[in-house]
Design a protein around this nucleic acid. Structure first.
Lengths: 111, 111
DNA sequence: GCGTTATGCTACATTAACTGTAGCGTCAAG
DNA sequence: CTTGACGCTACAGTTAATGTAGCATAACGC
């Protein structure tokens, strides 16, 4: 099932959902933004601070793209996950767990 | 536990594993490469073809970075996951499943 | 030995993406 | 009627990715 209207996503001319998704997640700051929103919504400015002063231009671009894809939306509490996006957001926790295990292994090798 | 020797990762000066990881995964082509390697190793050239003619410069950069982080390695069958990296690679399947559900929802909205 | 093919790259000029600083417009509170 | 928060936009400068070309090494067939 091809994704309509977002087929222009960089490098994903097939419109296959996984390609559109990988393309979006692979853009600079996308994952970091999703990480910072894992627990609760944040305002534009708070997100900017949490991300270590990402430029507003890029932040705005990513937020627009993520809203277009209905992964995030902009409600009363600021920017946060949609119901559907939240399921993707939970993956952030899994990445966190894996990364800690990974770091432990790398540390061993370097000892 | 900070990750040693890879603290220079873009935008992750803290060395926190999750930041190093998000930084790496957020680079263009990283996720696509991991996707294409999900089932079996591929040679440099096959990977290039699978990725729709990614430039060799970028492919080489990513592969070097992923080897440095011990997520991939280069063995007899070409480039493939390390034992540790493979656990991360399984997440690709989860992303695929989610993306299909997501596409179905987007299609509904657009109907 | 000698051409052929596959592989893993490197060089380099061009183009696209991101950055950093400044500041604007809107709104609500005091 | 000013002050502060918020959500941006403009724009010049820097960094990263692209695309084409081609090199070096090694194995294979003859």
């Amino acid at each position: 099932m091809p994704v309509k209207n977002i087929d222009k996503a960089r490098g994903s001319d097939t419109g296959r959902p996984i390609m559109v998704l990988l393309d979006m997640l692979g853009k600079r700051w996308t994952l970091r933004i999703m990480w910072e929103l894992r627990d609760h919504p944040l305002t534009f400015r708070d997100l900017q601070k949490q991300c270590g002063d990402i430029s507003p231009t890029t932040l705005n671009n990513r937020l627009r793209e993520l809203r277009d894809l209905q992964i995030l939306d902009h409600g009363s509490g600021g920017y946060g996950y949609t119901a559907l996006g939240a399921e993707l957001g939970t993956q952030m926790t899994i990445l966190d767990i894996w990364s800690n295990k990974w770091a432990k292994n790398l540390a061993k090798d370097q000892a």
